[in-house]
Design a protein around this nucleic acid. Structure first.
Length: 437
RNA sequence: CGGGGUGUAGCGCAGUCUGGUAGCGCAUUCGCUUUGGGAGCGAAGGGUCGGAGGUUCGAAUCCUCUCACCCCGACCA
């Protein structure tokens, strides 16, 4: 991508409404613009990151046999009247009346919709278990939206739903999703800790929240010190096998969000107790027949008798993750992306655009990287060096190849690593091979 | 929903108390000089001062109403 032709409206000054790092940086880096309170437009750079996160989430869902669908944002009110939630949900639900005076709503979640689809299509236990998900925009009319995309009213969520014939099977689906979530967050470069949670308005008997630690997190959490180091990295997981040992490993030690904290358990932990603030980036529920019963989602069991299916739902806040990742990874100059979600892998910075030799060297480098299949941003703008360096750091270009007349005269380029801040002068060939590692 | 705050050029702000030609920095456009970590000089463009009423010879400034946005708290991916 040539920066001179790209749409990247970066800001030198911080807009006054942005108080936390991720919100400030997303505005300054030209990732988003606010439309109204809690509602944002995604500009090219922000959208690139959003899509990268979305794709990782998608791959991990597909990997456990969860099938993607796409349900509408607008739902009919009678669906929700059937489940009894139309009145329960309150003013957080955005209600709409269409031209025929039918009551509609902008979906805050999709349990009713998916249950109806399932109920109309599946008749036998032989077709179970089944898991479906979609990645779709939601709207919840929050009392107080804040922190940019971290608590917007409109947000992108991956929500999955499981259908099983009995509790034991439902538990297996839950475990599958649980472990899949741990893997998903690791791929996103995040340390997410599962914590027992209240089931809230969605209901059910078992629920976990996944939180990442960050100073600006909205809830105060406490957990065993071991969670900080726990990881699934390099573990080859058989999702068709018994996942209970892994789930146990991540659930037996103490970890609780503020409303679930237990002072006695914390006392026992002593020095092993860590308290911090956390951002909720996922929430999974097992809620049995809460929706299947009222909405008639039953199947014939082995004995021919109808059984209400056991259900669960599993959410990941995709747009929130963009903010969450920035909260946990930035410095005073800008964003430091985990490799997996970085909008660009490498940048080429032309220090003297307009200089024939320098332009040629930069163009060649740019083309070579493109041929290698890299996501590359080429700063070919006619701007001063300082402005280019500042923008590259602001938007978090992980590797920056800096070419100027001075270095070219000596046959070297400068290679900068955004994360470590290291800079070194070396030949273009060495720089390219270092990046490819 | 309770409490607090802010709306003035694209962005950041001053001016409001004490009414009298709407300003500063950055950005933008043009010219010259510069060019390796957000350049210098000169010139230019850009505003219904959030909106509606009112007071006044005269309102960004005073009064009334209203809208939007932000922050703290209670609720949530």
């Amino acid at each position: 991508m040539r920066l001179s032709r790209y749409f990247l409206p970066t800001l030198k000054d911080t807009p006054s409404e942005a108080q936390i790092a991720s919100h400030r940086l997303m505005l300054r880096a030209g990732m988003i613009r606010q439309s109204s309170s809690g509602v944002y437009s995604w500009l090219p750079l922000g959208l690139r990151v959003l899509k990268k996160i979305e794709n990782i989430v998608r791959e991990e869902q597909n990997a456990i046999g969860c099938h993607e669908v796409l349900m509408p944002t607008i739902q009919p009110a009678d669906l929700w009247q059937k489940s009894g939630r139309y009145d329960d949900y309150g003013p957080e639900m955005l209600r709409i009346v269409d031209r025929h005076q039918r009551d509609m709503l902008y979906g805050p979640t999709n349990e009713e919709q998916i249950t109806e689809i399932f109920a109309g299509s599946v008749r036998s236990y032989r077709e179970l278990p089944q898991m479906l998900y979609h990645i779709q925009w939601k709207f919840r009319d929050e009392v107080r939206p804040r922190f940019g995309v971290m608590r917007g009213r409109e947000f992108l969520m991956k929500d999955a739903y499981s259908f099983d014939i009995d509790k034991e099977s439902a538990r297996r689906s839950y475990n599958k999703m649980f472990v899949s979530y741990l893997k998903t967050y690791e791929r996103l470069g995040l340390k997410a800790i599962p914590m027992a949670a209240n089931t809230g308005p969605i209901g059910g008997d078992m629920s976990h929240e996944f939180l990442i630690l960050a100073e600006t997190g909205e809830s105060e959490i406490a957990c065993h010190r071991d969670f900080i180091e726990m990881s699934l990295v390099n573990e080859d997981i058989d999702f068709e096998g018994d996942l209970k040992p892994i789930v146990d490993r991540f659930t037996t030690k103490y970890a609780a969000t503020d409303e679930m904290r237990n002072p006695e358990a914390e006392k026992v932990l002593g020095d092993d107790l860590v308290t911090a603030r956390g951002i909720e980036v996922g929430h999974i529920f097992n809620f049995g027949t809460k929706y299947s019963k009222p909405m008639g989602a039953s199947v014939a069991g082995p004995d021919g008798k109808d059984v209400d299916v056991e259900m669960g739902s599993y959410g990941i806040g995709v747009s929130r993750l963009v903010g969450g990742i920035i909260e946990s990874s930035h410095d005073e100059n800008g964003i430091i992306w985990p490799d997996s979600v970085s909008p660009f892998e490498v940048g080429v910075i032309n220090l003297k655009a307009g200089d024939a030799d320098c332009d040629k060297a930069c163009d060649d480098t740019y083309n070579t990287l493109l041929e290698q299949g890299k996501d590359v941003i080429y700063d070919d703008r006619d701007a001063r060096a300082g402005a280019k360096f500042a923008d590259a750091d602001l938007i978090g270009v992980p590797w920056q190849i800096i070419l100027g007349p001075r270095g070219l005269k000596n046959g070297v380029v400068e290679l900068k690593n955004r994360k470590s801040g290291e800079r070194e002068e070396l030949s273009l060939e060495s720089a390219l091979s270092k990046i490819s590692k």
